[in-house]
């Protein structure tokens, strides 16, 4: 079976600042994929920690069943606007998550 990524099965994966000190990622799915991914525990703090090179114990994960969405938030590794921050709005930080291969 060919590999499938989260970005391919999701209706939308988006990233944005949640204030100057946090990045937040939203994954919008259909009901079937939402249930499967939540049930399998695919998006764990450990997985996110590995994908984004952040400590798993700083990662917050929320399930929003009313709209089949999963929300992930963690402190920004580079503070917004600092010399080594390359994404002021954190608007392109969805790509690592969207590229996650779904087992």
């Amino acid at each position: 079976m060919p590999e499938v990524t989260l970005g391919e099965i999701a209706d939308m994966v988006r990233a944005k600042n949640a204030g100057p000190f946090w990045i937040t990622l939203d994954v919008f799915l259909d009901a079937e994929h939402y249930e499967a991914i939540v049930h399998a525990g695919t998006l764990s703090a450990e997985t996110i920690g590995e994908l984004y090179n952040v400590a798993p114990d700083t990662v917050l994960i929320f399930h929003v069943p009313t709209i089949n969405a999963i929300k992930i938030s963690f402190p920004r590794p580079a503070r917004q606007g600092s010399l080594h921050d390359h994404d002021m709005h954190a608007g392109q930080q969805d790509l690592p998550l969207a590229g996650l291969v779904i087992p």
Partner: peptide, 17 residues
């Protein structure tokens, strides 16, 4: 739509609830 309205609670907010 219920989804467009509910989804906005997620926007630029670390906690969706």
């Amino acid at each position: 739509t219920p989804t467009s309205i509910a989804a906005h609670m997620l926007y630029e907010n670390a906690n969706p609830f």
